[in-house]
């Protein structure tokens, strides 16, 4: 029983991180209709950014979230307004998928050249302490990571639900033409949404850096994780990302514990394929309805 509870706890903690890592992907998918295969690059770039800031300047990764988020917001905005926009207008929405894939290949290669093929981790002072709760044990970093994820997800949910900017994003997602007629600059909003997604990915990367080892090649895994989270939970909303992320974390933890750690990938993809066949819009559905 204890083992079961411990596994569940581990799964939920892992799931919180998956949620944060996927929410930007989910937002871009929901609002722009783009499957952004560069997403994993943003995550890993955030992790490398946090690593550099930590080792060179001694900035705690959790504080580094702010500069990393700002930089990736700018990068994401510029990237959407140029390359992705060109791909959509010159070719098609599907072509943008391939373009993001090509950019991901280039970026991965550049990261490999700059940082080398070694596996990195970020180890702040609180890395090695842990908390006990009855018989359950949990590392402090994981608690911190989960807390930071939940805070960021809530902030994003509030921004989307309560602010003018959030309403504009939702309007653009639901009815681009009507939003434009009401005086919204949808092109600019698409860029901003993409930037927001990139910033969230970068923030999650900084947190992932203190919890898990990473290399440039792990970007593929983070892109796929994001896709699985979206398919499990639902498109376009922080709540969907949270549900999907927690589910994915639980699947991962239970498979590693009860079936075999080598089979977690297989289990994740099996669930993905089954879910696609049964309910491809996720448990919570598409936050922007049938508009697309």
């Amino acid at each position: 029983m204890n083992l079961f509870l411990q596994t569940t706890l581990n799964g939920l903690v892992l799931g919180g991180i998956y949620s944060l890592a996927a929410v930007g992907f989910s937002l871009v998918f929901g609002v722009l209709g783009i499957v952004n295969l560069t997403h994993g690059i943003f995550v890993i770039a955030g992790a490398y950014g946090a690593l550099v800031l930590f080792t060179k300047l001694g900035i705690d990764p959790l504080l580094a979230i702010i500069p990393i988020g700002a930089v990736l917001f700018a990068v994401g905005y510029a990237y959407q307004r140029t390359i992705i926009q060109w791909a959509i207008s010159r070719a098609s929405l599907v072509a943008s998928l391939v373009v993001t894939f090509g950019v991901a290949m280039m970026a991965r290669n550049v990261l490999q050249i700059v940082f080398g093929p070694d596996v990195h981790t970020i180890t702040p002072t609180y890395s090695f302490s842990s908390l006990t709760l009855g018989d359950l044990r949990i590392d402090l970093v994981r608690i911190v990571a989960l807390g930071a994820s939940l805070v960021l997800l809530s902030v994003l949910a509030l921004v989307l639900a309560r602010t003018h900017f959030g309403r504009a994003i939702r309007a653009t997602a639901q009815q681009p033409l009507a939003a434009e007629l009401s005086g919204l600059n949808t092109r600019n909003l698409h860029g901003l949404t993409f930037g927001l997604g990139a910033a969230m990915a970068g923030a999650s990367g900084a947190i992932i850096g203190i919890v898990q080892p990473f290399t440039a090649t792990s970007e593929v895994a983070w892109t796929l994780n994001a896709f699985i989270v979206v398919v499990l939970g639902g498109i376009g909303s922080p709540a969907g990302a949270l549900v999907g992320g927690l589910l994915l974390g639980l699947i991962n933890a239970y498979t590693a514990q009860y079936v075999g750690p080598a089979l977690t990938q297989a289990a994740m993809f099996l669930v993905l394929v089954l879910m696609l066949l049964v309910r491809p819009n996720g448990l919570l559905g598409n936050a922007f309805g049938e508009s697309r």
Partner: peptide, 8 residues
């Protein structure tokens, strides 16, 4: 990878 990506 860089070249392939750029070509794409």
């Amino acid at each position: 990878l860089l070249i392939t990506g750029a070509m794409v």
